[in-house]
Design a binder for these strands. Structure first.
Length: 570
DNA sequence: ATTAGGG
DNA sequence: CCCTAAT
């Protein structure tokens, strides 16, 4: 199987890395969740459209491996599970799951034992499951921290074609909207909807649809509630790319179960189980908190990891499980740092920048049509500003035109002072933006270089020489918070590269003329080339030395007087 | 802290 | 631009 071989590429190292000490550290911070965080979470949970927000993938086997499902391990566990899960696919070690019978599953569920080696950290008969052809288990915890929704746990699949891949539990959040109904039914041990009173039905209706109704017709209400429940289940299923035909609504003791099953699709069904007992939520308390933290911390990552558990009959082969690359370290780092803000004691000083919250929550603002695709792209940058739009061609044109008018069309007179002052203005607003930006991400988001900046850089290089970036920055970019010495170096490297490219393509094609406009002007490049010969850049300038040899005559002037234009050739 | 170099 | 190693 394709997916299998792909999954097999996971190395043991990767798995091992999931358990770097970092995780426990991090997770600890999650539980120091301050009011701040809680609010953020609450906000998220209350988001109307976030009824089903998958935030993670977890293998139930985790619960087994974690003695009491402790906090520190949770997020690590998720990572681990994800991996392990894949690993299991190739290892064929979970074969035993295949042959599970429905009856035994029911028993196991009732006994809270899902598998010989997997046990949920809950006690007793909390799970009232309509386990008919059920492979999805959703556990709802109505603890104090809003209603967390641990959900969609692939417990078993009864499909003959079931494979270990399905042995996945997904964790999701559900808004509080659906909870009251569940709790409500929990109070009444009524197993059937039609045994409910009008008032009860109203409650259920409200819970399901999030609004009230004046209709008192029991039949109507019942239908609406059933309809709503079915839709909920179906939308859940959509998230998992599972289609469920029917939905049953059932209560049992202190639990409420919504199960959706479709006998025509042997494998597609789901069970939702509400843990209605307060004591129950204690068991899941840790998990919930972990999830809360996780939510804030690695939202997009988890989102990206949502797997498509298509239990849809035969087209399993069509299931594509794209593994998205892990989020960049930066992302993780920032997430961790943001969380660790509330976990003082670590490194006394709190870094001013970074503010993950924006990050997480904004990403979490899920849409209606969330996980339609086969994968979710990891949000990389922030949805922030597109502040400075591309100015490219016009920039150079305007500036150069200005400059060119001053001097001859072919010779670029550089006036650092003038250019700088004029640039400083725009620079300031850039700075402001960049600060704002830094509030949420370290990424600089590509501040395009203005012509004057480039000229200043060149001047700096001509004065100080290549490589002395710190000094160049001091001289040519004073009071410029952006453009670090590294930036200067990078830019210079790029300029040299541009020289190369333009030299090569110059004779060949004139087509590039169009694009050449928004590139660095030739006159500037010439100067760069010249400087490159004077101060050969460590590795990259060698290639163009030959070209610039004749120009070197003009070099001394350029050095001695920064306003001297590059009078060479062309 | 800076610089070089890879990504 | 970012990250890292080397200095």
């Amino acid at each position: 199987m394709n997916t299998t071989s792909k999954d097999c590429s996971i190395t043991f190292d990767e798995i091992a890395n999931m358990f770097t000490p970092k995780f426990s550290e991090v997770d600890l911070s999650l539980f120091a969740a301050s009011e701040h965080e809680a609010i953020g979470l609450e906000h998220f949970l209350m988001e109307p459209k976030c009824n089903r927000n998958l935030i993670g993938v977890v293998d139930f086997e985790t619960f087994h491996s974690q003695k009491f499902f402790d906090v520190e391990d949770f997020s690590g566990a998720i990572e681990y599970d994800e991996t392990k899960h894949h690993y299991a696919v190739c290892s064929n070690s979970a074969k035993e799951v295949r042959e599970e019978k429905r009856e035994s599953i029911e028993d196991m569920l009732n006994d809270n034992v899902f598998d010989g080696k997997t046990r949920l950290p809950t006690t007793g008969k909390e799970f009232g499951l309509d386990a008919k052809s059920a492979d999805k288990l959703v556990i709802l915890d109505n603890g104090p921290c809003k209603e967390s929704y641990l959900g969609n746990a692939d417990l078993e699949s009864l499909s003959p074609g079931f494979d270990e891949r399905d042995y996945v539990a997904e964790i999701s959040y559900m808004s509080s909207a659906s909870v009251p109904a569940l709790q409500f039914t929990h109070n009444h041990n009524s197993p059937m909807l039609n045994q409910m009173t009008v008032h009860e039905l109203h409650e259920a209706f409200k819970s399901v649809f999030g609004r009230e109704t004046l209709v008192t017709d029991k039949q109507w209400l019942k239908h609406r509630v059933l309809f709503g429940l079915r839709n909920q289940v179906e939308s859940d299923s959509d998230l998992n790319h599972i289609k469920c035909g029917t939905t049953s609504y059932k209560t049992e003791d202190k639990t409420l179960c919504l199960s959706s099953s479709d006998s025509s699709r042997s494998a597609a069904s789901s069970i939702k189980c509400v843990l209605g007992d307060e004591t129950m939520s204690l068991d899941w308390h840790v998990g919930r908190k972990g999830l809360a933290g996780l939510d804030l911390q690695t939202t997009s990552m988890e989102l990206s990891e949502i797997e498509l558990c298509s239990h849809d009959g035969g087209d399993k082969a069509l299931v594509t499980r794209k593994r998205l690359r892990k989020p960049p370290k930066r992302y993780i780092e920032e997430s961790l740092e943001a969380n660790s803000k509330y976990c003082k004691g670590k490194s006394g000083a709190v870094r001013p920048r970074k503010c993950l919250k924006e990050f997480g929550t904004s990403q979490l603002a899920c849409e209606d049509k969330p996980f339609k695709g086969s994968c979710i792209q990891v949000p990389f940058g922030l949805p922030i500003e597109e502040g400075h739009v591309k100015i490219n061609a016009s920039y150079w044109d305007s500036e150069n035109c200005r400059d060119d008018r001053i001097s001859s069309p072919k010779q670029l007179v550089t006036e650092p002072s003038a250019a700088a002052s004029q640039d400083e203005i725009s620079e300031d607003e850039h700075v402001t933006r960049s600060i704002v930006r830094k509030g949420s991400s370290r990424r600089k988001h590509h501040i395009s270089w203005t012509p004057s900046e480039v000229m200043r850089l060149i001047e700096g290089v001509s004065q100080c020489g290549v490589g002395r970036w710190a000094e160049i920055k001091r001289l040519s970019f004073p009071s410029s918070s952006r453009r670090t010495s590294v930036d200067l170096k990078d830019k210079w490297r790029n300029l040299l590269r541009a020289c190369c490219v333009q030299l090569q393509s110059k004779r060949k094609v004139k087509q590039g003329q169009k694009q050449a406009s928004h590139r660095v002007p030739e006159s500037v490049l010439w100067r760069v080339r010249e400087l490159a010969t004077t101060y050969p850049y460590p590795r990259e300038s060698n290639s163009k030395v030959a070209y610039t040899a004749p120009i070197s005559s003009s070099f001394p002037a350029a050095i001695q007087n920064r306003s001297v234009a590059l009078s060479t050739s062309v």
